[in-house]
Design a binder for these strands. Sequence first.
DNA 1: TTGCTCCTCACGTCACGTGAGGTGGC
DNA 2: TTGCTCCTCACGTCACGTGAGGTGGC
Lengths: 276, 276
Amino acid sequence: MGVLVSIGDFSRMTYLSVKALRHYHDIGLLKPAQVDAATGYRSYDTSQIAIAQVIRRFRELDMPLEQVKEVVDAPDLGARNRAIVAYLHRMEAQLDHTRETVASLRALLEDPTPSQPHREVRYRTVVATRALAISERVYMDELEDWWAAAFDELHQLLTTPGRPLPGQDAALYEGEFFEAGHGRVTAFAPITGTPASSGRAAVVEIPAAELAVMTHTGSFADLDTTYAALGTVVAERALGVAGPIREYYLPAEPGEQHMQRIEVGWPIFHTAGRKP
Amino acid sequence: MGVLVSIGDFSRMTYLSVKALRHYHDIGLLKPAQVDAATGYRSYDTSQIAIAQVIRRFRELDMPLEQVKEVVDAPDLGARNRAIVAYLHRMEAQLDHTRETVASLRALLEDPTPSQPHREVRYRTVVATRALAISERVYMDELEDWWAAAFDELHQLLTTPGRPLPGQDAALYEGEFFEAGHGRVTAFAPITGTPASSGRAAVVEIPAAELAVMTHTGSFADLDTTYAALGTVVAERALGVAGPIREYYLPAEPGEQHMQRIEVGWPIFHTAGRKP
DNA sequence: TTGCTCCTCACGTCACGTGAGGTGGC
DNA sequence: TTGCTCCTCACGTCACGTGAGGTGGC
C-alpha cells in the first residue's frame, strides 16, 4: 500500500507514544504491517496512519480500548457509524453533566448551606400500589441514561390510544445502590387498569411504607444536598431506614421548566439510636 | 457538632460508596469522627457531609485525590479558592478541547483524506538564528497550556517600550516528545538585539537545518494530519529525520482569525531507506 | 567503537471494585 | 438462631508508564 516505517517514525506521524503502539499491538488493536522474525522490530505501513489517528482521537475522548476495537474492527459500516454516533451523543451528554457539576460545585463553595424553600420534613404513610415498573441492577454512573430510557419506555406503554397518562413517575433505590455504587433501581408509574406489559416493563405491587419526605427543587446534580438534609433529620430523630429509598418526580411548576421537583422519601422505623 | 451515623447511612447521605469512604479514610482525606477501638466500626458526624459532597463533586470532575486533599486541607482560604478557580478554568479549557476533538473526529470519519489547500512539500535551508527561548521538558497532554504560557512570557519580554515585536514564533520538538509522550520543547522567537533574558527565558542559538516543510491550515486538533502527510512524503523519499521537529506559527490570514497557520518542518538527511 | 533505536520482561500507578472470610448486635 | 451491617486483607482493573537489561545496524 504505502511505505514501511519504523515504530519511531510512525509514532511521530500519529502522536501515539511508542509504548502505546506496542500496547495496541499486544491487544491486537493495531497490528504492525510487518514484524521482523529475528529482531522483533515492528514496521508500520503509512496506510495505517488513518486508523491510528482515529484511535488516538477516540482515546482522547476516553473511549475504552475494548470499544475502540469494536468500532475499528466493525465489519459493517452502518453498525460502525451507529456506534460512533451513539458515543459522541454520550460525550455531549457528559459535557452537559460536567457543566452542571461545575455550576453545582461553584454554588456549594459560595454558599455551603443553601436555604432551600422546602427544607422541612413531612411524614407520610403511603399504601401499596399497583404499578407498571422497570426494575434492574444499575450502576450509579449510568443512572441518568437508564432513568431517561426507562421512563420513556413506561410512558410509551401508558399513552396508548384512549388511555391518558395516569399517576406520577417514581422510583425505588435499594440501599446497595448507594453503598456499593450499583444496585436495584425500580422505575414505576402507578396504574389502575391492566396495560400491556411488554419489553422490560412488568406490573408489580409497590409495597406500603412510612416515609420521611423532603422536596428537592433544582437540578439532579444537587440532589445529594437534599439527601444530606433529609438524612440528617432522620439520624437526629433516631429513625432507622427500612427498605429502599423513594423518589417521586413531580411536574415542574409553570415558569420553572428547568427546575426539577423531586420528593425524596426515606422509609423509616423507630430505633434506639446510636450513642455518640 | 451533629449526630454520629454509620458508614452506610453516611454513604446514602453523600452518594459516596462505602468502599470509597474507607479508601478516603485510609489515605487520610476524610477521617471518620470516631472509630470503635474494639470493632473498627467507623462513625461519621453529619457535619462532615459538606466536605464529603465537595470531595464527590471534585472526583466527578476527575480531580486527582492528591489535589482534592490539598484543596480540602488548605489552611488558607485564599489559596484554596485560587486552586479551585484554577482547576475549574482548566476544566473549561478541557471542555473546549473535547468539543474540538469531537469535531475533528467527525471530520476525519466523514472524509478520511481531506484535500487541504497547501498539501505540497517544500524544501528549505534555514541558517542558525539567535533567539529568545524557553526550553523545558513537557508532557504531551500539558502542551497546550505550556505553549500559551511560554509565548505569553516571550512576548512580554520582547515588547518592552521602544522595541517592537520582531520575527515570528516558532518551536522545536524533540523526537522523544512524540515517542515517549514527553520531552524537551523549545519555544523561541528570533531576535536581533540583546533583550533582558529573565525568568525562564534565555538567549540561545537555534541551529541551522535542512527542512522538509508543509503548511497546516486549521485547528491544533488536526495538526497530526499534517504530520502524517509530511511524514509519509519524507518516508517515501527515503529521507531520515535529523534532530528536533520545528513548527513556525504564521500570522493568520485576514478574515481567517480562527484558523491557525503552522509550517511544520522535518529536519532531513538522505539515507538508504528501509527495505519493504 | 559509539550512540541510537529498538526489543522484552516485570513491576508501578491510580482510585477504587471484587470477592473471601470473619465478627458483632438485634 | 438468622440476617444484616460492618470489618480487614489480598488481589484485580485499565491503559499504559517506568525502568532494567539487552540486541542490531550505521
